[in-house]
Each structure stands twice: as C-alpha cells, then as structure tokens.
Design a protein around this nucleic acid. Structure first.
Lengths: 149, 149
DNA sequence: TGCAAATAAATGTAGGTACATTAATTACTT
DNA sequence: AAGTAATTAATGTACCTACATTTATTTGCA
C-alpha cells in the first residue's frame, strides 16, 4: 500500500523527505511481524538478536561490548537484556578470567534449542518479503547503504 | 557504510533477508539523528509527530483516534503522549460536544511557535539525506511500498 | 612504582511501546 | 424503548531505549 494512503498524508516536500518517513513506517511494519512471531516464545526482538549473536560465537563466549558492537541498536543496554536472558536460563554469564572488568556471556543448550525452534518461524518473515524481487532488494540495500554515507 | 561492516555480519541468507536488517538499521540511524535535533527542545520524535498532525488540522481539533490513524506507529498510545504535550502547554484537550466519548485535541499557540522553531532544525535532517538523489529516493519509496504489499 | 586516564559493565531516570482490559458513551436491533 | 454490541479513550503491566553516572578494573606514563 502506498505510504500516502497508510498515513493519510498527501504531500511530501520531496522524495527524500518521503523516503525518511517511509523507512520509519516500513521498520514499524517489519517490527510488528517479528513481534507476532516471537511473542508465543516469550522473547523480544532484541533478546532474539542477542541470542543470534551468541550462537554465532558459540562455543566461544561474548563480552557485553562485543554484543553492543554487533547489535542493530548500538545504544541499547545489552547488559539488562543479558540479565533477562539469564533469568530465563537461555544464557550464562560469568566473570572473564583474563580481564575481570569483562563478563563472558555464553548461550546455553536451552538457548540453542529455542533458537532452532525459532529458525523455522522466523523464516516466515521472509515470506512477507516475497513482494519484492532479489534485484529490487539488492537495489534497496545499495541505496540505503549510500544514504547512511 | 555497508551494512556488513556496520554490524560485522558477513553473510546474509539472501538480499531480501539483508533488506530486512537494513531497514531496521537505517531506521535506527535516522532515529538517532532526529533525537539529536529534538533533544534541545525537550521533545520526543513521537511528540513531534503528534504536533505536526495537529498543525495539519489546525484550527480544527483532532480526536485521539484521528491521531492514531495518522501516526507512523499505529500501536502507539497517543493518549499518553497527548497528556505529556498538555503538561508542557503545547496542546489543549477538552471533551467533544457532539460525541462525549471523544476528546478534542488542539495545538496551542505555544505549540505552533515551537513547531516553527523546529521546522528549521528538522530541515537539517534532509541535509543528512543528500547522499542519495531524488531518483534514488523515488526508487526506494517504490520498492518499500511494494514490500508492504 | 604510583597515580591518573581509560575501559567494561551496571544502574538510575525519564521517556516510549505492545497488548489487554476497563469505563463511559453511543449505535444498533428487535 | 430497552438492552446488547460497538466505539472511544484511558490505564495497568511488562518490556525496551537514550543518556548520564557510578563502580570496578586495567593501562599507561611520569
């Protein structure tokens, strides 16, 4: 659906201005889909993101700083998210031996099992992107990378 | 900067999958810029969004439902945001006469003055989009509209 | 070596969001 | 006209975020 109709705003100053609004709106659309998929598993998109990163490191641990570095949202407080995941038994956290300021965060078997379950469901998200071709997606990636400088 | 470098993830399942991550990441980038601009004026992007809609309606009032309808984030609780704006004296809220379930929300002179101040600053956001051409922006809008079906 | 600067993580505060529920009012149906 | 259904807004809960500050530890340099 055209952006103009979705938010009932007819005029934009420029295509660039509309682009800004469109990114915000599309982000929201995607977020809503992810939430629906993750909700039944009692996990938030941010927590999912962290688990994915930890699986990428497995069986090595990750420091909180490494998590922040790889997260989509750089300003997020990974610290508190790790705490939530720990409470659910999905990750372990212990002091790092070589640098006691750091903590070693590592995904548990339970965490890995949950991710495996989620892999299937999250593939469904891709089904929602079937409207655009791979070529269009590539073009979109190119322009967005260019946008951010 | 290429997405792969920003979040240090080398491989994506497909261009479509990368596209999903890219929208989230670019949204975040834009949001950070807006926050920086709005911060000195003590207003959040969401509150700004509401003031813009109210100015569009001015001098007519808007109901909370109308706000929700036009907001970028449909699931937001406009109700509480209106309360925040009221506390700052930027909007007025009174019971609607013809339908007492509704409230009439209207932007105040102070709200209009603030918006005028912000217009200039928010134009700076457009300066951050100069990397892409109008044609590229148009193409991006086309593809994102198509993505959402 | 000792002390200041830098770094890692945690935490306080003030905001925002999704979703479910509630209370008041209006519309609908027979 | 009466009672049920639908609609509008507000609110409770649990979560998330930006940013500043704090605490613990390590680095670096004089």
């Amino acid at each position: 659906m055209k952006l103009e109709d979705e938010i009932k705003q007819k005029k934009f100053k420029s295509e660039r201005h509309k682009m800004v609004v469109n990114v915000l709106f599309t982000n929201n659309w995607l977020n809503t889909i992810s939430l629906k998929i993750l909700k039944p598993h009692n996990i938030s998109p941010q927590q999912y993101n962290i688990l994915r990163i930890l699986r990428g490191q497995y069986p090595n641990p990750a420091s909180v700083n490494l998590l922040i570095d790889r997260m989509l949202d750089k300003m997020s407080n990974a610290s508190r998210l790790v705490e939530k995941l720990k409470q659910k038994g999905l990750v372990e956290r212990k002091q790092c031996i070589s640098d006691r300021r750091q903590v070693d965060v590592i995904i548990t078997d339970k965490g890995l099992a949950l991710l495996e379950e989620l892999d299937t469901s999250m593939n469904d998200l891709n089904d929602h992107t079937n409207n655009v071709t791979e070529d269009e997606a590539r073009e979109l990636n190119r322009i967005m990378d260019k946008l951010r400088g």
